[in-house]
């Protein structure tokens, strides 16, 4: 029964990882950009929620109403002012610029909030749980998982059923021809980053409620998100959710064997899948 519990907890944890990954997947899909600062932006969201909590006395879940648009704005500005200048054939500039951004963010947070671990207090909901037969399931993890499913379904719908999604796909296919259709690439990229960081805001707040975080916590989150994307298969959003779940289950089972193996087990499962299925478990079938 312990093992079943571990698998269940891991599955729910996978929802959080899918939220880490969805934003990463989105901007890669639209503009082939890999944002090394993605994890630090997740942590930044948690700190913004913390500040809203302190200054306005908001529950972090309510603060989301402010954190999501704030992060979206930051994303749009970041893309238009800095990242758009690096977009092109050469992979090095965006990589190194987002890497520099990552270091800057970590140290700005260090200056503003010190290295002490922080926590977001969401109240009674944090400890609430329901019993399913022999298993106890936390309300919060279930909420996170459901949010992840809803976010991915919404992104999927946006991508394939809306004008914005059409514009994203067209720009991803052929940037210059999309420009001929009257789509301003710089603006489209800005919107993609805004959307990515809006999802990041959800991920950051849920992370902050679940565990303590500090300014250096971003790197691991980037890695978890990245592993979920690769396990699931590049460009497949539902695959990303599956990838998050596989990673989460690997970690909780690893932790069950020995607490020291939690993270390591996740990495090892990732490397095994990379060795056996380099395109991920559910690669997108390209036309």
């Amino acid at each position: 029964m312990d093992w079943l519990n571990a698998i269940l907890q891991g599955t729910l944890l996978g929802g959080l990882y899918a939220l880490f990954a969805a934003g990463l997947s989105l901007i890669f899909g639209v503009m082939r950009l890999v944002n090394i600062a993605h994890g630090d932006l997740i942590v930044l969201s948690a700190y913004i929620a913390l500040s809203f909590g302190v200054s306005l006395g908001l529950n972090p879940l309510v603060a989301l109403l402010l954190v999501v648009p704030t992060m979206a704005l930051i994303g749009y500005a970041l893309q238009r002012l800095i990242l758009n200048r690096t977009m092109g054939e050469d992979l090095l500039p965006p990589l190194l610029v987002t890497f520099g951004l990552s270091v800057i963010l970590q140290n700005v947070l260090l200056m503003g909030y010190s290295a002490d671990p922080q926590n977001l207090q969401a109240g009674a909901i944090e400890t609430a749980s329901v019993t399913l037969g022999p298993l106890a399931v936390g309300v919060m993890p279930v909420m996170v998982f459901v949010t992840a499913v809803v976010v991915i379904a919404a992104l999927q719908w946006m991508f394939y059923r809306t004008a914005l999604g059409r514009a994203f796909r067209a720009t991803s296919d052929r940037q210059d021809v999309a420009q001929l259709m009257g789509l301003n690439r710089a603006h489209i990229f800005g919107l993609a980053m805004a959307l990515s960081l809006a999802v990041t805001a959800l991920a950051g707040v849920f992370l902050g409620i679940r565990t303590a975080f500090d300014p250096a916590a971003g790197g691991a989150r980037l890695i978890f998100g990245f592993e979920a994307v690769i396990i699931g298969g590049l460009g497949n959003l539902w695959g990303t959710l599956a990838g998050g779940v596989i990673l989460g289950v690997a970690q909780t089972i690893g932790a069950k064997i020995d607490p020291g193996y939690q993270i390591l087990a996740g990495h090892i499962v990732f490397l095994i899948i990379l060795a056996l299925r380099p395109r991920g478990l559910f690669p997108r079938i390209d036309g």
Binding site: A170, D173, R174
Partner: peptide, 11 residues
């Protein structure tokens, strides 16, 4: 109408 048609493959 560009040379080589250049349709959007994912649309």
């Amino acid at each position: 109408v560009p040379e080589g048609r250049l349709l959007f493959p994912s649309l």
